[in-house]
Deep mutational scan, measured.
Amino acid sequence: TTTLTYTDEEEARKAAEELKRRGITFTYTKRGGTWEIRIK
């Protein structure tokens, strides 16, 4: 499992869109002031 952490929502959203485009499965979690993208 790879976890990407972002403090900028815009960056996190761009990363999530890129992963979706590649067909990669991930979970997206907001934790306080950070956003976590966990790639399975």
Rank of each mutant, 00 (worst) to 15 (best):
E17S: 10
F26W: 01
I39F: 12
E10L: 13
T34N: 10
W35V: 08
L19D: 00
R13I: 14
Y6S: 01
T2N: 08
G23E: 03
T25Q: 14
E36I: 15
Y28A: 04
A16S: 05
F26V: 02
L19F: 10
T34G: 07
D8H: 07
Y28T: 06
L4P: 01
Y28R: 02
T7D: 09
K40Q: 15
R31F: 10
R31K: 13
T7H: 12
Y6G: 02
G23C: 04
A12W: 10
K20V: 12
K20D: 08
L4R: 05
T34F: 15
T7G: 06
F26I: 02
K30Q: 13
L19R: 00
D8G: 04
T2I: 15
T5R: 12
Y28D: 01
G23T: 02
T1F: 15
E11W: 04
E36G: 01
G32C: 08
K40C: 14
E17A: 13
G32R: 05
T34P: 02
A16R: 05
E11L: 08
G23M: 03
A16D: 01
I24L: 08
E10T: 13
T34A: 10
T29C: 09
T7Q: 08
R13M: 14
T2H: 11
Y6F: 15
I37H: 00
T7K: 07
A16V: 12
A15G: 03
R21M: 09
E36C: 03
R21C: 06
E18C: 09
T5W: 12
G33Q: 13
L4T: 04
A15L: 05
F26G: 01
F26N: 01
R38G: 04
R21L: 10
W35F: 10
E17Q: 11
T34C: 07
E11K: 07
E18L: 08
I37A: 00
R13T: 08
K30C: 08
Y6T: 02
G33P: 11
T7Y: 13
A12H: 01
A16P: 00
E18D: 12
T2P: 06
A15D: 03
R13L: 15
E18F: 10
T3S: 05
Y28N: 02
T27P: 00
G33A: 13
Y6L: 02
T7V: 09
A12N: 00
T2Y: 12
T7A: 08
T7E: 09
R22L: 14
I37D: 00
W35Y: 10
L19Q: 01
G23L: 03
Y6H: 01
E17F: 11
R22G: 04
I37W: 00
G23W: 02
Y6C: 02
R13P: 00
T5E: 05
I24C: 05
A12G: 03
Y28Q: 05
T34D: 03
R22H: 07
A15K: 13
E10C: 10
K14A: 13
T7L: 09
E9L: 05
K30S: 08
E17M: 12
G32A: 09
T29S: 09
R31I: 15
R38V: 15
G33N: 15
T25P: 14
R31A: 09
G32D: 14
G23P: 01
I39Q: 02
E36D: 02
R31T: 13
E11F: 04
I39D: 00
I24K: 03
R31N: 14
Y6W: 03
A15M: 15
K40E: 15
E11Q: 11
T25F: 12
G33W: 07
T25K: 14
A12M: 07
Y6K: 01
F26M: 02
E36P: 00
R38H: 13
E11Y: 04
R21F: 06
R22N: 08
T1I: 14
A15W: 05
K14Y: 07
K30V: 10
I37E: 00
G33I: 08
R38Q: 14
R13V: 10
A15N: 03
E9G: 06
T2C: 14
A15Y: 09
E10Q: 13
E18T: 07
T3V: 15
Y28W: 12
E18N: 08
T27C: 09
K30M: 08
T7W: 11
E18I: 10
E36H: 05
E10P: 04
K14G: 06
K20H: 11
K14L: 11
R13E: 08
T5G: 02
I37S: 00
T2G: 07
A16K: 04
A15P: 00
G33D: 15
E9K: 06
E18Q: 08
K20F: 11
T29D: 05
L19P: 00
K30I: 08
R13D: 05
E36W: 06
R21V: 06
W35K: 00
F26D: 00
T2D: 07
K30H: 11
G33L: 13
E17T: 09
T3F: 10
E36K: 03
Y28K: 04
A16C: 09
T29N: 08
T2K: 11
W35M: 02
E10V: 12
I24P: 00
R13Q: 12
K30D: 11
T34S: 10
E11I: 06
I37K: 00
E17W: 11
R31W: 06
W35H: 03
K20Q: 11
E9N: 03
F26A: 02
E17K: 10
A15F: 11
R38D: 06
E10H: 12
R13G: 04
R31M: 11
L4D: 02
T34W: 12
I39T: 03
G23A: 03
E10W: 13
I24E: 03
I37V: 03
I24W: 05
R21W: 04
E9R: 07
E17R: 12
Y6V: 01
R22F: 05
T29E: 13
E36R: 04
A16F: 08
G32H: 08
T5K: 09
T34I: 15
K20G: 06
E36V: 14
R22C: 08
Y6M: 02
L4F: 14
T27L: 06
T1L: 12
A12R: 01
I37L: 04
T7S: 09
R22P: 01
K30F: 13
R21K: 11
G23D: 03
W35L: 02
K14S: 10
T3P: 04
T5V: 14
A16H: 02
K40L: 15
T27K: 04
A12T: 01
D8L: 08
E18V: 07
W35R: 01
I24Q: 03
T2M: 13
L4A: 03
T29F: 10
K30E: 12
I24R: 03
R13Y: 07
W35Q: 01
Y28C: 10
T3K: 07
L19A: 01
E11S: 13
K14W: 07
T34Q: 12
K40T: 15
E18W: 14
E10R: 14
G33S: 13
E17Y: 10
I37C: 00
T7N: 09
K40G: 14
G33T: 12
T27G: 03
K30P: 05
E10I: 12
K40S: 14
R31S: 11
R31D: 06
K40F: 15
L4E: 02
R38T: 15
K20L: 13
G32F: 06
G33E: 15
E9Q: 07
E17I: 11
R21D: 06
E11A: 11
R31V: 15
R31L: 12
F26H: 03
K40M: 15
E10K: 13
K40N: 14
G33Y: 09
E10G: 13
T27F: 06
R13N: 10
G23R: 04
R22I: 06
A12L: 04
T2Q: 11
R22K: 11
G32S: 06
L19S: 01
T25V: 12
T3W: 08
T3R: 07
K20P: 00
G33H: 13
T1V: 14
E11N: 06
T27H: 05
K30N: 11
T25D: 15
R31C: 09
I39G: 01
K14T: 09
K20T: 14
G23S: 03
T25L: 14
T27Q: 06
G32Q: 09
T1E: 14
K20Y: 11
Y28V: 15
T3Q: 04
E18H: 07
T25N: 12
E9A: 07
K30R: 09
T5N: 05
T7C: 08
D8K: 08
R31E: 09
T25A: 14
A15E: 04
W35A: 01
E17H: 09
I24H: 03
